[in-house]
Simulated scan of single mutants.
Amino acid sequence: MAFIDSHCHVIAPLDLAPMAPQRTYTPEPADITQWRDTLAPLGVSHGVLVQPSVYGTDHRVLLAALAQAQALAPLTLAGIAAVDADVGDAELDRLQAAGVRGIRLSHFEPGDPRDRGGFVRWPAFEALEPRLAERGLHLQLFTDSRLLPGLAPRLQRSRVPVVIDHMGRAPAALGARHAGLRTLAALMRDAPVWVKLSGIANISDAGPDHADARAVHEALLAAAPERLLWGSDWPHTRPGGVKPSTAALMDLFIAWTPAALRARIGWDNGRALFGF
């Protein structure tokens, strides 16, 4: 079975590509060849490179990786960029032509330590939405599902697909019945909202098997499997803690997902959303 990795990153050596001065961590270098060598043995043939917060709106590393991928057949990549509300049309067109399929924003309460420096904040969506719609681009949102009850009416009116990072990002210890996760499930059913089954290590306190996250995984499966995507979150650029094994994360997805849904979530949904 072929897989699409819907959430991964590339990081250049610091002396080759400057990082945002307001960043809250400095990840180690990780290039597209390393991603291929790690994920290809797991059946992954396509990937979605997500602009990490450490680069702000500077896309030189992302665009270089997308260009490099063209020489690494059979490898197909798309990109998720980060732009300010006043980005020019020419820049949006340039990003789209390079393979960008979505724009990433952050939505957290003021002072939340997860609202890392370098992100473009949620209010930019008002100005960006019509321009994304014109180009067939979607919104990727880095947030906490506990904030979704207040945001849900706006997401229901979205003119573009909305992809929520990392299973909603709320701690797995809260379980699957809190209001935020219930809102997320409802949005998946009734609004143009997708969710990435990625970043388990970022919500779990029970590594390496992350058993506390299984209830969240299963609740999302029950809500709308046609709105789910699998992602590795390689190279696991978390500010602290032990990095998870990418192969072990794939094993968890297979173990926790009924066989009848694996191809839909691992391949079909991503192929439709990202245009592969």
Rank of each mutant, 00 (worst) to 15 (best):
V83I: 12
A85N: 05
A85H: 09
A85V: 01
D86K: 08
D89C: 05
E91G: 00
L92P: 11
L92V: 04
D93P: 09
R94P: 01
Q96C: 12
Q96V: 06
G99E: 07
V100N: 11
R101T: 05
R101Y: 01
G102E: 09
G102S: 09
I103D: 11
I103Y: 07
I103A: 07
R104Y: 03
L105D: 08
L105Q: 07
S106W: 02
S106Y: 05
S106F: 09
H107C: 13
H107Y: 14
E109R: 14
P110W: 08
G111E: 03
D112G: 01
D112Y: 01
P113A: 09
D115Y: 00
R116S: 03
R116I: 02
G117T: 10
G118N: 06
G118D: 05
F119I: 02
F119D: 12
V120R: 14
V120K: 07
R121G: 00
R121A: 06
W122F: 15
W122E: 10
P123M: 04
F125N: 10
F125L: 15
E126G: 09
E126L: 11
E126N: 09
A127D: 12
L132I: 02
L132E: 05
R135G: 02
G136T: 07
G136E: 11
L137T: 02
L137R: 04
L137I: 01
H138V: 03
L139E: 11
Q140S: 12
Q140E: 15
T143K: 12
D144G: 01
R146M: 10
R146W: 07
L147R: 15
L147M: 08
P149V: 00
P153I: 02
R154I: 00
R154S: 13
L155A: 05
L155V: 03
R157M: 06
S158E: 06
S158R: 04
R159C: 04
V160N: 13
P161A: 08
P161R: 09
P161M: 07
P161V: 05
V162G: 12
V162P: 10
V163N: 12
V163K: 10
M167L: 14
R169A: 10
A170E: 13
P171K: 13
P171S: 13
P171I: 08
A172G: 13
A172D: 08
A173D: 12
A173C: 03
A173K: 13
G175L: 04
G175I: 04
A176I: 01
H178V: 03
H178N: 07
A179Y: 00
L181W: 08
T183C: 13
T183N: 03
L184H: 06
L184R: 07
A185E: 13
A186E: 15
A186V: 06
M188Y: 10
M188A: 12
A191P: 09
A191E: 09
P192S: 03
P192Q: 02
P192H: 03
P192F: 02
P192M: 01
P192G: 01
V193W: 12
V193Y: 12
W194I: 01
W194C: 00
V195F: 10
L197T: 03
S198R: 05
G199A: 03
G199Q: 05
G199W: 05
A201R: 04
N202I: 00
N202Q: 14
N202Y: 11
D205K: 06
D205N: 10
D205I: 00
D205R: 13
A206R: 15
G207S: 14
D209H: 13
D209R: 14
D209W: 04
H210N: 11
A211H: 14
R214C: 04
A215S: 15
